[in-house]
């Protein structure tokens, strides 16, 4: 069921997931579009998540009339680091998310979304580990999943083992660190994926809906020109504010229509539909890379859970089984 409406306030709105935002020109969503978008969200009972512009400077303020419209409804704000958006009303929402592509020294928000390529993550592992104790929820998003090779599996395993050590130390001190790649899976009893097009939908400044911002970027960059709808076209939209939502083959976005994922228990995996389409060419089929990375994380979570249990009772209702594969594709015949 649709629950969230992501509104990209500007073409430059901060990238907050796997895809970089290649759009650098300012293009604010027209205020009328914004109002209609909010109305759509209200009528469909959707929680609104605004993604704020990244103008590459901390000195910006949205025009006053925008601030008023934005705050006309309860919302979550996703904004580039250091630019707590000035909207006129500071409501300091617990769920607001600060996004950055650099490992920060300190974090002001309650949620940090850190976007890094794999190599940078390896290089800055200690700086990242320092953030675990900050009391802030850390979401790390790897921005070059498609480049990941089997030759890097060991390095990733080792890195997560090291971080497990840091997290275990914090647990022992009675703290409850939150780090998506390692602590989420320990808490989950079912899939908790991105669910683009299923639980959330994105409204772009052009007044059209997209499965997620990445599909909007692709359309603007004319990527996947040949890979979309019936007629070759770069149109990725799935409806607009006038016609409403119109998602072709919506069932293929759902977990029950993804033969690999519905049999998988890497519950913390993003299950990124955009990466699926980019790498396997089918939106319901994950790439080897995505599965392998998610399974290394899953297995590391299992070992963190077990280490925690050596110290005392810990999440007794969660069971993460031992498995001997890192890509469910290898065991698909056993499903």
């Amino acid at each position: 069921m649709l629950q969230y409406l992501v509104i990209l306030l500007d073409d430059t709105s901060a990238a907050y997931c796997h895809a970089d935002n290649p759009l650098k020109e300012r293009n604010l969503m027209p205020i009328e579009t914004l109002k209609k978008g909010i109305l759509f969200g209200m009528k469909q009972n959707l929680m609104i998540q605004y993604v704020f512009p990244d103008y590459g400077t901390r000195d910006y303020e949205l025009p006053k009339e925008y601030a008023e419209v934005i705050e006309s409804i309860d919302n979550v704000k996703i904004y580039p680091a250091g630019c707590k958006p000035v909207t006129g009303i500071e409501d300091g929402n617990e769920t607001d998310v600060e996004v950055t592509n650099e490992v920060p020294e300190k974090v002001e928000a309650k949620n940090l979304l850190l976007r890094l390529p794999f190599s940078k993550m390896l290089k800055q592992k200690d700086e990242i580990a320092k953030l675990f104790a900050s009391g802030v929820r850390i979401n790390l998003c790897i921005t070059d999943v498609e480049q990941f090779t089997d030759g890097q599996i060991e390095a990733y395993k080792q890195l997560l083992e090291e971080w497990n050590g840091v997290l275990l130390g914090l647990y022992k001190q009675g703290l409850s660190p939150q780090f998506n790649l390692l602590t989420d899976r320990m808490m989950l009893k079912e899939m908790h994926n991105c669910e683009a097009g299923v639980s959330n939908i994105t409204l772009a400044p052009n007044g059209k809906f997209y499965l997620c911002p990445a599909f909007y970027y692709d359309e603007r960059m004319k990527v996947f020109n040949q890979l979309n709808h019936h007629q070759p076209s770069s149109d990725n939209s799935v409806g607009d504010l006038e016609r409403g939502l119109d998602i072709p083959n919506p069932q293929l976005l759902r977990l029950d229509h993804a033969p690999l994922c519905r049999n998988c228990d890497a519950y913390q995996c993003r299950r990124c539909l955009w990466l699926n389409r980019k790498l396997t060419w089918d939106i319901n089929t994950p790439s080897h890379q995505q599965c392998v990375m998610a399974h290394i994380e899953r297995n590391a979570s299992r070992s963190l859970l077990n280490d925690n249990r050596k110290v005392g009772e810990f999440m007794p209702e969660i069971d993460i089984k031992e498995i001997n594969y890192v890509d469910p594709f290898e065991v698909r015949k056993e499903f």
Binding site: N228, H229, H230, P248, N249, L252, R277, D282, I283, N284
Partner: peptide
């Protein structure tokens, strides 16, 4: 014949 780029329709 599919509406989207898929072999699952």
């Amino acid at each position: 014949a599919a509406q989207t780029h898929t072999v699952f329709e």
